[in-house]
């Protein structure tokens, strides 16, 4: 007990520093959790959040009622997995390229250029894509396919192309962010490792494999785990604005968020909206725990908790 008090005294300033953040977390992230009960309620204004009658799982029914349930869950998960793989892989590759640039100024230019799309609103990205794909005035149909003698493609009515388009657009837009994190983590590697490797005559490829990659592994794992927690969420704009809400494309562009938005936008049913959010967060929570468990089995040190 005595030791504990001593310890507490020693760490007290640290705890005090931690307090505002913790309070913020409790107020902002934990207290609203009690609102999740509304997902199981037949909500009425008069009886309030906690007084309204329970209605079991009725609010969840709409999510699983049609064959769409399978399509939207499949799309959400597969897209996110594709995003995780492509973004991290390309992010590391680009980061290595950028770090090996000798010219300092060019390094900055490339780094900013690659980050720029990330700062753009998805609505604008949607219009850029439209400028390429529009049936009436799009660059690809009128500028490439037609002059070369190919048939025009009605992009917004052919679902088959869209998984490529979505992944491409997401990579184009998002790669800068991951790249930035990897650049900073590569810059943090002690240059002495590379100097020693150079002396021993290690090739560039060997340096990457045996120095760079092992050093950024913790960063990769953190980023992947964070992304896995969001596998059941999706960038709404990417799936709604970019395909311009074209119904014919739903088989490859409909994800849980857009499904919920389209189904509930007109009705404004609070219980059902909460049910959808509840479903996403519980699935995300389970996924993070599983992924972390797997990581800790392989390498305890790299696990988040």
């Amino acid at each position: 007990m005595k030791i504990n008090t001593q310890k507490l005294g020693r760490y007290l300033p640290l705890y005090l520093m931690f307090l505002p953040g913790a309070l913020y977390l409790v107020i902002n992230n934990y207290l609203p959790m009690s609102g999740l009960v509304v997902a199981f309620k037949d909500y009425t204004v008069r009886e309030g959040l906690f007084g309204s009658p329970w209605n079991g799982l009725k609010n969840f029914e709409f999510l699983f009622r049609t064959p769409d349930a399978w399509v939207i869950t499949r799309n959400t998960i597969l897209y996110n997995l594709a995003f995780i793989v492509v973004n991290n892989l390309l992010g590391i590759i680009f980061a290595i390229f950028i770090c090996d640039l000798a010219n300092k100024r060019l390094k900055k230019v490339y780094q900013s250029a690659i980050l720029f799309p990330y700062l753009m609103s998805t609505v604008i990205v949607g219009y850029i894509v439209f400028a390429f794909l529009s049936p009436s005035s799009g660059m690809i149909n009128n500028g490439i396919l037609k002059p070369l003698g190919f048939n025009e493609v009605n992009w917004y009515f052919e679902a088959g192309y869209w998984w490529v388009i979505i992944v491409f657009v997401n990579t184009w837009k998002g790669i800068g962010y991951g790249c930035l994190i990897y650049v900073s983590s590569i810059n943090g590697i002690d240059p002495e490792h590379y100097e020693a490797a150079d002396l021993d005559g290690a090739s560039k490829w060997r340096q990457i494999r045996h120095i760079t990659l092992p050093s950024v592994t913790p960063t990769i794992i953190t980023l992947v785990l964070l992304a896995i927690g969001k596998v059941f969420y999706s960038d709404f704009g990417l799936f709604y604005q970019v395909p311009r809400d074209s119904g014919v494309l739903y088989s490859t562009t409909n994800v849980i968020d857009t499904y919920v938005y389209r189904g509930l936008m007109k009705q404004g049913n609070i219980g059902m909206s909460a049910a959808a959010g509840f479903y996403q967060s519980v699935c995300g929570f389970v996924l993070v725990l599983t992924a972390n468990f797997i990581v800790s089995k392989i390498n305890k040190e790299n696990a988040l908790f």
């Binding site: 009622r65 769409d68 189904g263 009705q267 059902m272």
Partner: peptide, 14 residues
């Protein structure tokens, strides 16, 4: 409400 939201999604598709 369940049916209507499911129906809205079908309608939007086509």
């Amino acid at each position: 409400a369940t049916q209507i939201s499911a129906l809205n999604n079908v309608k939007n598709t086509y």
